[in-house]
Design a protein around this nucleic acid. Structure first.
Lengths: 225, 225
DNA sequence: GTTTTAACACCTAGGTGTTAAGCT
DNA sequence: AGCTTAACACCTAGGTGTTAAAAC
């Protein structure tokens, strides 16, 4: 089995969600620090209840998940990838009259678990640390039969994005040590509800105000963010 | 020294230009066949004397260098890269009155030799063979101090693009066998003169007629290609 | 009634040759 | 004179929320 296949398995199967960063004790990953970029923007969305559009063809996230990394071994090789785990086993619906989310029953059947490898992977620590690492190519879809490698999510369900930093072990015949030499980072500010159409109008307005691609919908009064 | 550094050195230094494809006898590269895509278009340009624009910021090639590959080991890993070698040691100028290229003296000082790695490298044979491999991200520049990793060329000089297919040897502590386990392919139809502005008006017309990005300059009479 | 889809106008981002000015 | 540069209008390609219709 190839490296990526093994890694995919390891990352989608056995990893429990932990609210804090988890690092193995291997010297080349233990010291890694990850800082969420555009943190203030994520916070603004989070306070309103972030929503992310999912479409059949795949939709980018906004805000984009991007991080600044320190503490890697500059010469060592790492793979960076993201996955999304359900926050709970509930389905939600939005009550427009009260402008709030309500639990609408148990979660739907789990979708095919997928991961998104950062396209620069694998690369050396020096490269990852040189500048902001952006996952802007990542797309979300609600198409269970998606054939483009996009992340599949259930609409009206809540998800927590996670970042995994995996050390590529160069030693010949080493068992892939993905279960040991990796770190997992999650930022609770990046949680969101997957939707096919925006529910909370204030989320729509914040997206329009902050996403350059939505500039066409800006009015003078929504410019103040 | 890293893999790519070694490879870069190996490819820019010691490789003599050969008009025919050259393959080492290693079983995983000896059977590789490479077919130039959009061959007819390249031929049309070649018959007129292909010109490629070079700019300070970097300019794509048109036609794009793209190939279809067969005969790889589907499970083996390969790196694909391109370089450009001078066809001769001459400088050219275009005689408008006779619509032909003339030798204008000896070639200028050689530019920094660079290679362009296909961004999907390294990847398995199965991946490379699955669909057309396109080098559309490759850019040509005349800026000797270019900092973007673009291919540096002398304007008014003739060049031959080359494709190198390098087998990535997975064995630990194997000396990098780039000097043995690789193939080089060149297609004489892809030779061109680097220019900062088009010289032959028929080349301009064929570019306008065939490059979608130049559609704005099409007239009804140049549509017939 | 709620959720999803597809077409759409309006953007960003960047690839074209043109053109006029600048360089040597 | 020959060659190069930079601004430009006009494209391609694709990321936005909107909207009305469709699906369930």
């Amino acid at each position: 089995m190839g490296f990526l296949s093994k890694l995919t398995q390891a990352c989608t199967m056995g990893l429990p969600f932990l609210p804090e960063d988890t690092c193995a004790k291997a010297p080349q990953v233990a010291g890694i620090k990850v800082q969420l970029e555009t943190f203030e923007l994520w916070q603004q969305f989070d306070q309103l209840g972030t929503e992310m559009i999912v479409t059949k063809a795949g939709r980018r996230m906004f805000p984009t998940f991007q991080v600044h990394i320190t503490g890697m071994d500059p010469a060592a090789e790492y793979v960076l990838l993201m996955d999304f785990i359900p926050v709970d086993d509930k389905r939600y619906r939005y009550a427009f009259h009260s402008s709030s989310w309500l639990v609408a029953g148990r979660g739907d059947a789990a979708v095919p678990g997928r991961v998104h490898f950062h396209p620069d992977s694998p690369a050396r620590g020096a490269q990852w640390m040189k500048q902001t690492v952006s996952f802007d190519r990542l797309k979300l879809t609600n198409n269970l039969l998606d054939d483009n490698g996009h992340i599949i999510l259930n609409s009206m369900h809540r998800y927590q994005p996670r970042l995994h930093v995996v050390l590529v072990d160069q030693r010949k015949d080493s068992q892939l040590t993905a279960h040991r030499n990796f770190c997992t980072f999650s930022f609770t500010e990046t949680r969101f509800t997957a939707v096919t159409a925006y529910q909370n109008h204030r989320i729509t307005q914040l997206k329009i105000a902050s996403n350059p691609f939505a500039k066409g919908f800006r009015t003078t009064d929504s410019d103040t963010w």
